Computed example of a mutant assay.
Amino acid sequence: MWLIVIAAIGAWFYWGNPTLNVANQFWKNDAAPWEKVTAIYFPDNLKTYDHMVTEDLNNVAECRNVVKIQANLRNDPDFHRGSYICNVGKEREEGGISIYRLSVR
């Protein structure tokens, strides 16, 4: 019995992605302790090419604080003109595009 359990866990580590599975299970709306958060702030929703990126944040709350400071500096504290996104857990890059585990606001 124990041999089957050990083999199943070994297969999970070999073919699966245990850190991703654990993060999805226990940190559904925030960063797991081993993940970083990237804040993307758009000062003007009509000009999405104009944005500010802040990387290596510890959690979503820190992301929200960073973008609120940026919005306040631009006299838009309620995000009437701008918006933001908090990207959690960068998994990989494909063709110059970053793929994250989770994106929250």
Rank of each mutant, 00 (worst) to 15 (best):
M1H: 14
M1I: 02
M1C: 07
W2I: 03
L3C: 02
V5S: 10
A8F: 07
A11F: 08
G16H: 13
G16C: 14
P18F: 03
T19V: 07
L20N: 11
N24G: 03
F26K: 13
F26G: 13
W27Q: 15
N29D: 15
D30A: 07
D30P: 10
D30Q: 14
A31F: 14
A31Q: 13
A32E: 08
A32V: 02
P33K: 13
P33Q: 14
P33Y: 11
P33H: 13
W34Y: 13
W34S: 12
E35K: 04
K36G: 02
K36L: 04
V37M: 02
T38Y: 02
T38C: 04
I40T: 06
I40A: 06
F42T: 10
F42G: 05
F42V: 04
P43V: 03
P43M: 03
D44A: 11
L46I: 05
T48L: 11
T48V: 09
T48K: 08
D50Q: 09
M52S: 10
V53L: 05
T54R: 14
E55P: 01
E55N: 09
L57I: 05
L57D: 10
L57E: 09
N58L: 15
N58I: 12
N58H: 12
N59P: 12
N59A: 09
V60R: 06
V60P: 05
A61F: 01
A61Y: 09
E62V: 04
E62T: 07
E62H: 05
C63E: 10
R64E: 07
R64G: 10
N65D: 09
N65Y: 10
V66W: 10
K68Q: 15
K68C: 05
I69M: 13
I69E: 15
A71K: 03
N72D: 15
L73K: 15
R74I: 01
R74A: 11
D76S: 00
P77I: 03
F79G: 09
H80R: 10
H80T: 14
R81P: 01
R81C: 00
Y84I: 01
I85V: 08
N87S: 12
V88L: 00
V88R: 00
V88P: 04
G89E: 02
G89M: 01
K90D: 02
K90V: 00
R92M: 03
E93Y: 06
E93M: 12
E94H: 04
E94L: 00
G95R: 05
G96N: 12
G96C: 02
I97H: 08
S98D: 13
S98N: 08
S98R: 06
S98E: 14
I99E: 08
I99A: 04
I99Y: 15
Y100N: 01
Y100L: 02
Y100M: 00
R101M: 00
R101H: 01
S103Y: 08
V104Y: 11
V104Q: 05
